[in-house]
Design a protein around this nucleic acid. Structure first.
Lengths: 126, 126
DNA sequence: CCGAATCCACAACGATACTG
DNA sequence: CAGTATCGTTGTGGATTCGG
């Protein structure tokens, strides 16, 4: 992930540009809402309101904002059905699906170590 | 990961409390700095200044803050050598090591899809 | 060398209101 | 129903300074 910042090579500028891009994308993806959206979508196709309902605690704004970001990065596909009322559906693209294992792993890890972490926190706070 | 918010069960309060704890821990871990720290530490033991040097772009404050959080959650172990100047070393604990695969997977994913995402962005921005 | 505290600019977020 | 815009509050994060 992290490459050297400066090596005096002729491609120096390109390297740092590529790095900052990688870092930016990494930040987009190492983000709780994005990972929860991926986890909830999984292999399904869900409407905006369904996503909103399944991800408890997410605001309308955060959901649109993250979906827009993920669409821009090509992680989700957005399909609009021009009916009334409008119906907008989201589904994971191939790159998005490639993240399911990671998102799922994070959730699994959280549950697995929940008790351990709770105990560690009590020790630390004392 | 996400459990129902309300089911009228007698344990209702406990369930939502456990959920908010899980969500809190998930947010701590689904965080770019924490994942980069895990990725850089890997199986090594590094000093604060070494970590700071290897994670380009992280500020002194962000590093201490995240290390403190990770120590509290039991992801890293902090050992202080009472010399002068002081020497403080960090290493991953077992729960922390259990996240290496995930952190590494995210980095790998980023590099694998870098070009794809860059192209997707160009399309979207047009 | 490491860490904590202060200050402050600005980004994130929630709430609300308005459009197609 | 879905999306955008605005506003006000909270929080985040960098720079700096001081202390062990």
């Amino acid at each position: 992930m992290v490459t050297e910042q400066f090596r005096g090579s002729p491609k120096e500028a390109d390297l740092t540009r590529a790095d900052s891009l990688a870092r930016e994308i990494f930040s987009d993806v190492a983000n709780k809402w994005a990972l929860l959206i991926i986890n909830v979508l999984d292999e399904r196709t869900l409407r905006f309101s369904e996503l909103r309902h399944e991800i408890q605690g997410i605001s309308h704004k955060m959901l649109t904002q993250n979906l827009r970001m993920m669409e821009r990065n090509g992680l989700v596909e957005r399909s609009v059905h021009p009916t009334v009322p409008p119906r907008v559906e989201y589904t994971l693209t191939e790159p998005g699906r490639a993240l399911r294992g990671i998102a799922d792993g994070m959730c699994g890890w959280t549950h697995q170590y929940l008790g351990h972490i709770e105990a560690s926190r009590r020790r630390f706070d004392a």
